[in-house]
Design a protein around this nucleic acid. Structure first.
Length: 461
RNA sequence: GGCCCCGUCGUCUAGCGGUUAGGAUCCAUGGUUUUCAUCCAUGUUACAGGAGUUCAAUUCUCCUCGGGGUCACCA
């Protein structure tokens, strides 16, 4: 069974890049009928926080991505790691290194001065003398000094590293006993049964080290898929400084989970010419072998388009529910259908939709000068008065009813349709743009329409 | 700097030796709309460069250039 994972370190909110690798992992697990598990890498007490973990979980919840099984916290597994450290020590595959931090720094500086690769020189690898006083040792693993390390990657192909180029006896446990990242990752992935690792390609150069750990421990090496980075417009790795990378900020901006996920799945992955993917389609069609090799630049133009698309194609009931989070309560509004039908194709975001709704439902407090100048001229008020009179004598309900009354006025006064449309629009909204006027009137009703017309005339004569 | 990865329209991408290099987005223009938006149509724009292999290279190989990632007792 395929088991994939998402393993964030809780140092902050969930960002776009993390979400995309999480999505890929999720989709592939589901596609394979496997499991997608979540592991919180909270070994660095200084930088981690419980709030960050909660923020990540909250984002997952908003997006509807659920992890299978219990969440694993590395901070609760120290005895497991200690056991493996002891095992490697006992087997002679790891050793204690008594080099002080000062000595290490000194070594590095010398190497840099000689333009050599900075690496640990292995001075305690075969040490069996008396350890120096007052130095708490770190544990280092014995890495191969020569030879080829092959990383079989499902995205990039097989990558070859030379041990002498990249490896040294790296630290697997700090002086305080805490294990390091490359060590625990290998252990956890193995223990959690993870056999397909999908992660950012910034981890590619870590992989040989993890392979060293896998081999020392006799574990099977999982399949790797290193997905390219998402870059900012400057071509650099997307970071928190690049504006909205907090996934939850997208909710605030009015994006739907569906649009965000669809946007992300197409960043670095494609299925022919298809642009729109439902969650079911993503699951059915996703395959990590189709992931791109090159990094992509983060640009939200397409996200806006997708979001508009999904808003247009969401049922009014569902929209009304989504709008609750944006301060719009429509569930009991009797003209909900008419209103949403008219507005949902005009908004790129739910936030925009919310403000469009507010705009219509609120009596205008002011009138745009330009609109007034253009609409309220030569006899415009007479036409408005005529329409008011017509309204008072009728009981219109639907947009078509209001429209019919407009037609009557137009034909009785022998004027063009523009002579009533424009003034009415400005009277109702205070500006030029907007949805069909008959729709607006039907939504706000006869009384409010009459009152807005009167107010417009009073305030603008 | 060492090591590793990458390089098709501005952006997201299709392509997997022979294509008028396709789609989407963006932008522009036209149509629809009393307005705006939607929608529809049309259009501008790309194989980083150079060698080689081949009857034929965007596609395969090498080099150059460009970009990125990584080199911790951080994850």
């Amino acid at each position: 069974m395929v088991v994939t994972r998402f393993a964030p370190s809780p140092t902050g909110y969930l960002h776009i890049g993390g979400l995309r690798t999480a999505l890929f992992s999720y989709l592939w697990a589901k596609n394979q009928g496997g499991k997608f598990v979540l592991r919180i890498e909270d070994t660095d007490k200084a930088r981690n926080s419980e709030e960050a973990t909660q923020a990540i979980l909250k984002a997952f919840e908003w997006l509807g991505l659920a992890a299978d099984g219990e969440i694993t916290y590395q901070s609760q597994r120290s005895e497991i790691y200690a056991k493996y450290i002891k095992q490697l020590l006992d087997e002679g595959k790891a050793y204690k290194c008594y080099m002080s931090k000062e000595e290490l720094t000194e070594l590095r500086e010398t190497q840099m001065a000689n333009k050599e690769r900075t690496m640990y020189d292995g001075r305690y690898r075969d040490f069996n003398g008396t350890p120096p006083e007052g130095v708490a040792p770190v544990i280092r693993i014995k890495s191969p000094k020569t030879g080829e390390i092959l990383v079989k990657d499902g995205v990039k192909g097989t990558i070859s590293f030379q041990a002498e180029d990249i490896l040294d006896d790296f630290v697997i446990a700090r002086a305080d006993g805490a294990p390091t990242y490359n060590f625990v990752v290998a252990i956890d992935d193995h223990l959690m049964g993870i056999n397909e690792v999908i992660r950012g390609d910034d981890h590619l150069s870590n992989t040989p080290k993890q392979i060293v750990v896998y081999e020392a421990l006799g574990f099977d090496i999982p399949a790797f898929y290193h997905v390219p980075m998402i870059h900012n417009s400057k071509g650099k790795k997307l970071s928190k400084r690049d504006g909205a990378t907090d996934v939850m900020a997208y909710k605030e901006m009015g994006y739907t989970p569906q649009a965000l996920l669809n946007f992300l799945v197409r960043l670095g992955w494609s299925h022919g010419d298809q642009e729109i993917f439902s969650m079911d389609e993503m699951i059915e069609l996703f395959n990590p072998k189709d992931i791109n090799k090159s990094a992509s630049i983060y640009n939200t133009e397409k996200l806006d388009w997708l979001n508009a698309h999904y808003i247009k194609n969401t049922s009014n009931d569902a929209l009304a529910e989504l709008l609750e989070d944006y301060g719009i309560h429509l569930s009991s509004h009797d003209k909900k259908e008419i209103l949403l039908d008219a507005l949902k194709e005009r908004a790129k975001t739910l936030k925009e939709l919310a403000s469009l709704i507010t705009e219509i439902l609120t009596t205008p407090s002011e009138y745009e000068a330009k609109a007034v100048k253009k609409a309220f001229k030569d006899g415009a008020f007479e036409v408005l008065e005529a329409y008011s009179e017509k309204l008072k004598l009728n009981e219109p309900h639907l947009p078509t009813d209001y429209h019919a009354l407009m037609e009557e006025v137009v034909s009785e006064m022998e004027i063009g349709f523009g002579k009533i449309g424009m003034p009415l629009r400005v009277a109702l909204l205070g500006k030029m743009g907007g949805p069909n006027i008959d729709v607006i009137m039907a939504v706000i009703g006869k009384e409010e329409t009459l009152s807005r017309i009167q107010q417009a005339i009073t305030k603008n004569s």
